[in-house]
Design a protein around this nucleic acid. Structure first.
Lengths: 205, 205
DNA sequence: GGGTTTTCTGGACGACTGTCAAGAGTCTGG
DNA sequence: CCAGACTCTTGACAGTCGTCCAGAAAACCC
């Protein structure tokens, strides 16, 4: 029989692996219930551990949540890199970008509504602020790589600063996410059309 | 001695007045603590009543919150009407609109972060969805009146649909609100600059 | 295999929550 | 002025929450 997949590791590595394992379970529960309703017991129930183990790996609930936020960031920060790398024309990048937006919106809706939940909670809970601010600026950079590449492929200059470009696109995405939860396909089509309409406006004439 | 200001009213009117009074107290507490942390006892403590009275005027917590959301809507839905009514030139409207955005952002930040909190919560709590969707479409109409008037004054046509125009501006506003809570004056200046840069792009050439 | 350390369990604690009901207080119409 | 309706307070109830801890279980090392 082969040993378990975490056989030969330093104690520190195993510790981190458990934390990640718990974070993954926690993220699933958080995406389901939101920040306020996701209790530590519920999180533990949806994992393979009991509720007491959380305080063995995390000091308190807030540390777990913050760890989850940072862990989640690592997954999504490179989401559009292939779009940027593979594009050869401005129109092609635009199509691929819009398609990717729709894909993540429909396949990872729970994670995204959790993100917007946590970002809102950070306005009331100072302990969340640093982590949220950091991931927000990372997302902004991610969007900016898309916009900048789009402008270069079009031989034009971006007409908006990185922050404005991110704010604008994030607003559209959030609106689509909100409408998507009880809407159907046409919400996704609308998002594609909106992005196709908006992106060209973000270039100087 | 003059009678109290609610001397001659029908019972139904007095009932509604109390509900509004409670809603006003609740909104203050909600803006302070957010949806999750604002307990009925805390809400009642910040009013002049005891915690039991809430269930005399509202069936449960959710009904109070939903009532508050609708009550809050009535206050803000006409916020930009004077901007639209008083403007005589496109540039003048743009200046007034941006100034009003900054004003409400800085003087009513607690209400706005509550709004974004509730909108995020509506993705987890179906009971909030109807009220949130309704106020969101009302806000969209409010923004559209500004954009449409702006386009007419400029002798041009809007290049974005109402939903997209609202999504885009809401994204910028939300970003500014988020940055405003630990930032200073330059956040407000950035918002003004962003709106001035964006609005002309929302017109067809 | 035995002793030590690490990991995990399950129960207990106090604080807090939404909800409810019994009764006191207040107002009102006759 | 008083009986009845309306309004409000207070205390209690059953849950749930985050946190902590004593000890069981497992993993590790010599």
């Amino acid at each position: 029989m082969s040993p378990t997949r975490e056989a030969r590791r330093t104690p520190a590595e195993k510790h981190d692996a458990r934390r990640n394992q718990l974070a993954e379970s926690a993220l699933q529960t958080l995406g389901e219930l939101g920040y306020a309703r996701a209790s530590l017991r519920e999180i533990a129930t949806n994992s393979e551990f009991s509720h007491g183990v959380v305080h063995y790996y995390f000091q308190d609930k807030l540390e777990l949540i913050v760890y989850c936020v940072r862990y989640y960031k690592a997954q999504c920060v490179t989401r559009y890199d292939s779009v940027v790398a593979d594009a050869t024309t401005a129109d092609g990048l635009l199509d691929a970008f819009a398609a990717k937006l729709v894909e993540t919106l429909s396949t990872e809706a729970p994670m995204h509504r959790l993100w917007y939940d946590l970002r809102a909670q950070s306005m009331f809970e100072p302990g969340l602020r640093d982590a949220v601010t950091h991931i927000d600026s990372t997302l902004q950079q991610m969007i900016w790589r898309v916009v900048d590449r789009y402008a270069r492929l079009a031989g034009r200059e971006p007409a908006l600063a990185p922050a404005a470009a991110y704010g604008v696109l994030d607003g559209l995405f959030q609106q689509a996410l909100l409408a998507h939860q009880d809407g159907g396909q046409e919400v996704l089509d609308d998002l594609v059309a909106q992005v196709h309409g908006l992106m060209p406006m973000m270039l100087k004439p």
